[in-house]
C-alpha cells in the first residue's frame, strides 16, 4: 500500500495549538500543500497576524515573521519589495484584516502587490474570547454584541471578497469554506490558484476562507460546520470574484 495522504513538508511536526475542531488547522494544511506542490517552500516568507494564528510561525516550515495587528499586508509589502523573487503570503483573521487592518489590506490590494493573502473569516474574534468581528452576522450574539449584532448601531458584516474585487489592481479573489470535504477540495484549488497567480507575477491574490470557531460560537465542531453552512454561506456566497484573466 502506498501512502496517499500525509502531512505536507511545509508544515512542521508541531501539533497545532488551536481548539478542537477549529478550521485553522485545515487552512494551514492547504496552504502548506500548495507550497509543497509548487516547490516554493524554500523561497517562501509567511507573515502571521495577531490573533489565534499568531502561532502560525510555529507550524509553517518556512521563514516566518509576525506583524503588528492588521499590518501583515504592509509587512508583506516590505518583504516582497526587498525580495521580489520570494513567495510572500499573509495569513490573517477577520479582526486583523477587516477591522484594524482595513487600510493596509485595501491599499496593498490596490497597489497590486504580488503577494497572496489567506483571509480566515470565522465571524468572531477568537484569541480575545469571542467578541464581535466586522464579519459577525446580523443578530449573532458575541461578548460585545450580547443582544445580537444590531446593524443600526454596529453596521452590517463586511463582505471582504466582494469589496476588494472592485479594485483594479487585484488579480485573484475567491471565497471558499472548509465545512465539508467537497468544499475543502475547492478551497485547495482556490489557494493553489492564488499562489499560482503570485508565482506567475500577476499580482495580488486573496482567498477568503469561511471557517468555524466552535469554542467561541458555543457549538460542537459538527454543529459549527452546520451553522456555517446555514448562516454564513447564504450571506457570504462561495466562488471566484476575480480571476487573473480579467486583469488587463
Amino acid at each position: 500500500m502506498k501512502k496517499v495522504f500525509e502531512s505536507p513538508k511545509s508544515l512542521t511536526k508541531d501539533p497545532f495549538t488551536y481548539c478542537p475542531g477549529c478550521h485553522h488547522g485545515i487552512a494551514h494544511r492547504l496552504v502548506a500543500e500548495a507550497l509543497d506542490e509548487f516547490g516554493v517552500r524554500e523561497k517562501t516568507i509567511g507573515v502571521c497576524p495577531v490573533g489565534c494564528s499568531v502561532f502560525a510561525y510555529v507550524f509553517f516550515n518556512c521563514d516566518m515573521i509576525c506583524a503588528a495587528h492588521g499590518r501583515a499586508p504592509a509587512v508583506a509589502t516590505g518583504i516582497k519589495r526587498a525580495k521580489p523573487d520570494s513567495i510572500v503570503f499573509t495569513y490573517q483573521g477577520d479582526g486583523d484584516l477587516a477591522s484594524i487592518g482595513t487600510a493596509e489590506i485595501v491599499h496593498t490590494a490596490n497597489r497590486g502587490e504580488n503577494i497572496t493573502v489567506i483571509f480566515i473569516n470565522n465571524a468572531i474574534y477568537g484569541m480575545t474570547g469571542g467578541q464581535m468581528a466586522p464579519t459577525t452576522l446580523v443578530g449573532q450574539v458575541t461578548q460585545t454584541s450580547p443582544y445580537g449584532r444590531d446593524p443600526k448601531t454596529m453596521g452590517y458584516p463586511i463582505k471582504v471578497a466582494e469589496m476588494l474585487s472592485t479594485l483594479k489592481g487585484v488579480a485573484y479573489i475567491s471565497r471558499v469554506a472548509l465545512s465539508k470535504p467537497a468544499y475543502i477540495l475547492k478551497a485547495k484549488k482556490a489557494i493553489r490558484k492564488a499562489f499560482q497567480t503570485q508565482i506567475e507575477g500577476k499580482g495580488f491574490s486573496l482567498v477568503e476562507v469561511l471557517s468555524t470557531c466552535p469554542t467561541n460560537w458555543g457549538l460542537s465542531p459538527i454543529e459549527a460546520n452546520k451553522w456555517l453552512e446555514e448562516n454564513m454561506i447564504p450571506y457570504y456566497p462561495l466562488g471566484e470574484f476575480k480571476t487573473p484573466e480579467e486583469v488587463s
Partner: peptide, 26 residues
C-alpha cells in the same frame, strides 16, 4: 530598490519592518 508611498505612517513603518527582516537597509 523600492520606494512606496504608504497608506499611512502605521503601514510605512511596518513596510520598513518587513524589508529590514530580509536584511536590506531600509
Amino acid at each position: 530598490a523600492a520606494f512606496v508611498q504608504a497608506e499611512s505612517e502605521l503601514a510605512a513603518i511596518s513596510m520598513v519592518y518587513g524589508a529590514a527582516a530580509t536584511g536590506v537597509r531600509s
